[in-house]
Computed example of a mutant assay.
Amino acid sequence: MTEPTKYFVVTKKAVPEVLLKVVEAKRLLESGKLPTIQDAVDAVGISRSSFYKYKDDIFPFHDSTQGKTVTLSMQIEDEPGLLSDVLQVIAQFGANILTIHQSIPINGVAALSISVQVLQTTKDISEMLDAMEKRTGVHSVKILAKE
């Protein structure tokens, strides 16, 4: 009996360089910028064997989220308009908000969970999370679940 596939969400800084280069080679191929695997691996500086070893096991987070529900957890300061700013980021990236739950602020910070549906037209979720974290008053953004 085979063990079920397990997935992990890690930040880019925790991913070995060879895996990031495999993702970049795949992007070059998919975009049509380079016509062959050999051209792509030469451009990013990895071997063909490394590419083939990892190509089916590494992909940008956004590619695995289309058509899924992603639940986010964040800590935000209790400031007028900050929740609206966070929701505006979601709207700008084209995700569909399904649920919002905000706790009563304690010491000026509220826990917030938001579930969003990732559509075919939704822009890169990783970039959306980054845009949220860059908002003044947002302390952290974490992915709780992907269904």
Results as ranks from 00 to 15, higher is better:
Lys13Trp: 04
Val15Cys: 05
Pro16Ser: 06
Val22Ala: 09
Glu24Tyr: 06
Lys26Cys: 04
Arg27Pro: 01
Arg27Met: 07
Leu28Ser: 02
Leu28Asn: 01
Glu30Gly: 09
Gly32Tyr: 13
Gly32Lys: 11
Ile37Asp: 04
Asp39Phe: 05
Asp39Arg: 12
Ala40Asp: 01
Val41His: 10
Val41Asp: 00
Asp42Gln: 14
Gly45Arg: 15
Ile46Ala: 09
Ile46His: 08
Phe51Cys: 05
Phe51Leu: 03
Phe51His: 00
Tyr52Asn: 08
Lys53Phe: 06
Tyr54Gly: 00
Asp63Asn: 11
Thr65Val: 14
Thr65Cys: 15
Gln66Glu: 09
Gly67Pro: 10
Lys68Leu: 15
Val70Asn: 10
Thr71Val: 13
Thr71Leu: 13
Leu72His: 13
Gln75Leu: 15
Gln75Met: 15
Gln75Asp: 15
Glu77Lys: 14
Glu79His: 11
Ser84Arg: 03
Ser84Asn: 09
Asp85Cys: 00
Asp85Trp: 02
Leu87Val: 14
Val89Asn: 00
Ile90Arg: 00
Ala91Asn: 08
Ala91Tyr: 10
Phe93Cys: 00
Phe93Gly: 00
Phe93Tyr: 06
Gly94Phe: 05
Asn96Ala: 04
Asn96Leu: 03
Ile97Met: 02
Ile100Met: 07
His101Ala: 02
Gly108Met: 01
Gly108Ser: 01
Gly108Ile: 01
Val109Ser: 03
Val109Asp: 03
Leu112Asn: 07
Ile114Pro: 05
Ile114Arg: 09
Ile114Thr: 12
Ser115Met: 05
Gln117Met: 09
Val118Thr: 08
Thr121Phe: 10
Thr121Met: 02
Thr121Ala: 10
Lys123Gly: 07
Lys123Thr: 09
Ile125Asp: 04
Glu127Tyr: 02
Met128Arg: 03
Leu129His: 12
Ala131Pro: 03
Lys134Trp: 01
Lys134Cys: 12
Ser140Ala: 13
Ala145Gly: 06
Ala145Gln: 11
